[in-house]
């Protein structure tokens, strides 16, 4: 226990986080590249076509991982905000700050691919499908967090306000999701939801699993990398950063 706590405490110090993340990051980049490459080739070229939707179902391999990630990133952003608010660990806030645009990008990917997928399945670019609607609301939540952080002139206030909003949002996400699902069933679903389908054969869901894992590794690697930049930016006047910069030239 003691060892774990001291490790967490060290992780909370920007200098240590910078050093540890440098060792972890390459592995996550490598894993992300390999998994996404394998998943893409498998999903695009080798997985069998769907009996109902033909080859358009191959959009699932980008739509679903992006949707998973969009929700997970919001949760991890709120957890980082909680850690920042309770234990005043600055690295947590730096991570939360770089997670928000990343999550918004993932939400956009899942919305865009969902809309494009709608053309061959529903015959229209936009359908007020339960999943697409919740994703759209999630995008607004992300934009709100990003805008609120940027609106404050003092960085610390912006960080704390964004943390509070992320926590309020994460409590609301399940409520929004269930109410939208309920609303959609009330107004009679058009045909069938894109992603809820009869059990998929292994050749179809194995690449999906690989893609999901690859996207998660990509998220971790990108977050680590941008958090490192954020550390350098905010700690630019600290001695260790100046020594680091001096050593490079």
């Amino acid at each position: 226990m003691g060892k774990i706590w001291s490790f967490i405490h060290k992780l909370g110090s920007p200098k240590w986080f910078y050093a540890i993340s440098a060792r972890l990051m390459p592995w996550f980049w490598l894993a992300a590249a390999v998994l996404i490459l394998v998943g893409s080739v498998w999903g695009l070229a080798f997985a069998p076509a769907d009996y109902q939707q033909g080859n358009s179902f191959r959009i699932i391999y980008v739509h679903v991982p992006a949707a998973f990630l969009a929700q997970s990133i919001f949760v991890s952003m709120a957890v980082a905000g909680l850690i920042f608010m309770v234990w005043k660990i600055k690295v947590a806030d730096m991570a939360a700050a770089v997670m928000a645009p990343l999550g918004a990008a993932m939400t956009f990917i899942s919305l865009f691919s969902g809309a494009v997928w709608g053309v061959p399945t529903w015959g229209t670019w936009w359908m007020w499908d339960a999943r697409l609607t919740s994703m759209l609301i999630l995008l607004f939540l992300y934009l709100g967090v990003i805008a609120l952080r940027g609106a404050f002139s003092s960085r610390d206030s912006g960080s704390r306000a964004a943390s509070v909003l992320a926590m309020v949002g994460v409590i609301n996400i399940p409520i929004i999701k269930y109410s939208v699902d309920w609303w959609y069933t009330l107004h009679q679903p058009a045909t069938f939801s894109v992603t809820s389908r009869p059990a998929m054969p292994l050749e179809m869901w194995a690449p999906l699993l690989i893609m999901v894992l690859g996207f998660y590794c990509f998220f971790i690697a990108a977050t680590l990398m941008r958090t490192r930049s954020e550390i350098l930016r905010r700690e630019a006047n600290k001695r260790w950063v100046r020594e680091l910069a001096g050593g490079l030239s």
Partner: peptide, 9 residues
Amino acid sequence: YVWASWGVT
């Protein structure tokens, strides 16, 4: 549809 989704992603 497929290439647009994959391309944008």
